[in-house]
Write a protein that binds this DNA or RNA. Structure first.
Lengths: 201, 201, 201, 201
DNA sequence: TATGAATGAGCGTTCATTCAT
DNA sequence: CATGAATGAACGCTCATTCAT
């Protein structure tokens, strides 16, 4: 399986790239650092990824795929429909706590508007949306969510809002303490309940 | 009026810097580009701003001050308490549409964790929070907002959520169309009503 | 006395320049630092000194004049001819310990060959040589120095050698300790006695 | 022989660097000039030397190694012990005449106190001292040098004095002519005999 | 005479990308 | 497939000097 060997190496490089990005920051990391971390030659890196931007996009795709997998795991555990919704939001929180890189990637793409989502990037984004949408639709059908809720809109809105809250939590810790006296987790809990309140029937 | 002449030039440079940042992106813009845009010599730029980071911080301060001014103007026009809250959120929206740079700046400082907010930067951030808080407190006192609402938490949460939504609107337009069929404005309207619903008594 | 007022300011700037050169080093100091130290405007500095190089030359002239003055004081105290010669060499040592800048200046001019001695610089150099020469000639005439000593040659040689030794003392302290176990002062003493031994009759 | 090819290029760059330093001066030379002289790209220079300071240190090491090699050659030719000592001093003279850069390098590291000698730099300096010391010790053991001579002290002193004299010769030619009428070589000869006189038994 | 804002060539260094082997 | 030496444009920043006021 030559095929699998190549894929394996690709995965290894991707993991090293994640590590380097986490360590050095999305604005500072260099291709050199990745090459060193992965213990490969400069040219080899360009054999697998055609540019720095491409590598960044593929790391992002992987991160989003990981997130989707976690969504599925965590919602699978829950019986109640609204708990599944809560699980989605808490997973975003925990995912960010474990691998803050993910949220950096989101923000990075937002700041660098001219980096347009690649096809693969869009595709996994859509898969995430579709999954969240299915959770919401089921909850609605089961009557646990207001009849007049536009689930598609809500699905996207949850994504936007939770990213915004996570960024705030991540960078405005002092302000958070000073104004609310709450921990990050308590603050995020308040956010989740605000969302749930506004949709529950 | 020597004073005013220097201040005038400073303002001019700041405006050129804004333009360049908008055009080239916060991660890509160069001091050279600003120098060229402002039609001044390299050294002159460093006469007014001691480093690239300093310049960035001062542009951010200016943007936040502009935002606060707009908050005051727009809430001043409204009679109803909840309309004042709506005005805050709509102002963020319009402000971003006119000067999308502002939201990038917010996110930028969030992505670059080790760029610590300067004193001036923090101070204006707090002034914004305090202003929004006063609006919410008044609304609560007047009985238009639920008794059990934690206004300080809400104030911060509104900031986080609206930034997240604005980023999403800005970068995921295709997704927005595909999933909801809504315009940016309609989508943002839904967001505002979700917030209002969850706080009104 | 407008004249004296100008001369006074010139002297003040010169002293500030010395201070800055001592503090920041001959290779690192900037005209800005001098302007700040002397509390004058940039343009004013250039009113008194036509360039950085000119300023450096004039500081050097002043340093050499100070050295010559000290030579005269210290040799004046001594009765014995050979003690006067010793006094010359010890004065170089103490002068360097108090104002190491002097030796830096010497070295600086040596490293920067294309900085040619200005007329004023040469002139004070010659005055120093003539003074040392007169000390040596008197000692020779008094029979305390070998008859066949070429005093002019010796005078220059003493200058060269003591500068070399002072530089070595200044920068190779570790080597000095490791190889000889001597203090700077003891080492310099050995040097002086080597010189005296080789000329005394 | 990949190894040798890299070493060869390193040597070539080192030689070009020497040439540029000689031409432009140790305080003025730029990395750009070296790149141009060696006809390589800017980045290539940094592939071989990690900074300007590193390059300077390595050029100095090379110069000192060359000097030591010459010391060994020239002393090897001589039968008499004192002629070996003379050979050391004459070698310094000739070495400086051929590659005046060497003495500048010595002085440069002395002027720039905070450029600490790297390990390699110190090590070759010590090797030189040890070699000279061995010459002096042999001469002493053979009874050609005074019994009470401290050879370690003398070894260092010879280094210091000859550097001082060479600098003087190099930069005070006019003074030398005017005061002594001697050529550089004759003057240096006088210096050597002064040293020899003061140590011979 | 004194000022200090303005200049701009120049610096050391980095790094994404290429290509001959 | 893999290598890693080589590239060179671009970067943020400095500073001696000038000149209009």
């Amino acid at each position: 399986m030559k095929e699998s060997k190549k894929a394996q190496k690709r995965r290894k490089i991707l993991e090293c790239a994640e590590e380097v990005m986490r360590r050095d920051g999305l604005n500072k990391f260099s291709m050199d650092a990745i090459v060193k971390e992965a213990d490969i030659a400069k040219g080899t890196l360009y054999l697998y990824f055609k540019s720095k931007e491409d590598l960044l996009a593929q790391v992002t795709v992987k991160a989003r795929e990981d997130l989707l997998r976690r969504f599925k795991e965590e919602t699978g555990n829950k019986a109640e429909h609204l708990d599944k919704v809560r699980a989605i939001l808490w997973t975003s929180y925990h995912f960010y706590k474990e691998k803050e890189l993910y949220n950096d990637l989101v923000a990075y793409y937002e700041v660098n508007r001219n980096l347009e989502d690649t096809d693969a990037l869009q595709e996994v984004g859509e898969r995430i949306q579709l999954f969240v949408l299915s959770i919401l639709d089921n909850a609605k059908q089961a009557g646990h969510v207001k009849k007049d809720t536009n689930t598609a809109t809500l699905s996207l809105m949850m994504w936007g809002m939770s990213n915004g809250i996570l960024n705030l939590i991540d960078t405005k810790d002092t302000l958070l303490q000073k104004f609310t006296g709450k921990t990050k987790q308590t603050f995020y809990h308040s956010f989740i309940e605000l969302v749930i309140d506004s949709i529950r029937s």
